[in-house]
Design a binder for these strands. Structure first.
Length: 231
DNA sequence: GCGACAG
DNA sequence: ATCTTGTCGC
């Protein structure tokens, strides 16, 4: 990837970022279906492949309503700060397979917590036309700002503030585990995003089950694909 | 050359 | 992300 190409991607991110809104466009009581999205990778004969899995949950009962996946070649490299350009094409093709329409999407990665506020969750919202939330497992440092460790208690969080602005939260989802990093994708406020994440956190995992199940599903598909290749 | 680096 | 077993500590 050359610097000139990166400049173009950055330009697109800046254009899109002017349309971000961190206010709820919905009432929480109207949220029925919430989707968790993740991708797993492998390579075969020098070609990179990825599978995107989307698991749709009923918000109230947490029952799984639908599960779809889509496999394709991955052309774009991973570049920190430009994850959406690598993963979003596969995500959008997978969304097309859904028969149910989620009211909210949760991503593995950041949203507003990004140099230009354009992590994958935010970037995706403009194509999905729905509220999104970013949930990252590791910290993406912005302008050399470190995160503040939250108290060692379920639900404790600290704000990630860069240039006087709140970019996201460091959230403890269980005792004695590393925190996760929650940020708004779009059309949702940070309090609501945090609330939804905690709603889907169960005591088995540090991640909300939306993201967790999507992650497990991608591993399943990859395992099947790899064994198919060998035969 | 060295360190940083969501997934 | 991925390559990977046991092991230390709640």
């Amino acid at each position: 990837m050359k610097k000139h190409d990166i400049d173009e991607l950055e330009k697109l991110q800046k254009q899109l970022s002017s349309n971000i809104s961190l206010k709820n466009t919905f009432k929480l009581t109207d949220i029925k279906l919430v989707a968790g999205i993740d991708i797993a990778y492998w390579s075969n004969e020098g070609i990179d492949y990825g599978v995107c899995c989307i698991v749709v949950f009923d918000y109230l009962t947490k029952a799984i309503i639908e599960e779809v996946h889509h496999i394709d070649k991955i052309e774009f490299p991973y570049i920190s700060g430009y994850l959406a350009f690598r993963e979003l094409p596969l995500v959008l093709d997978t969304v097309k397979k859904l028969k149910n329409f989620p009211d909210l999407y949760m991503f593995d990665g950041n949203g507003y917590l990004h140099n230009r506020h354009m992590g994958i969750a935010t970037h995706a919202s403009f194509y999905l036309k729905k509220p999104t939330i970013g949930v990252a497992k590791t910290y993406l440092k912005i302008n050399n700002v470190d995160f503040i460790e939250p108290e060692n208690e379920l639900g404790s969080y600290t704000e990630i503030v860069v240039n006087e602005e709140v970019y996201g939260r460091t959230l403890r989802t269980r005792e004695n585990v590393k925190p996760i990093f929650v940020s708004c994708g779009n059309w949702i406020d940070l309090d609501t995003a945090t609330h939804v994440v905690l709603h889907f956190v169960e005591k088995n995992s540090r991640l909300p089950i939306t993201t967790r199940y999507a992650d497990l599903a991608t591993h399943e598909v990859r395992r099947e694909e790899l064994s198919r290749i060998k035969k």
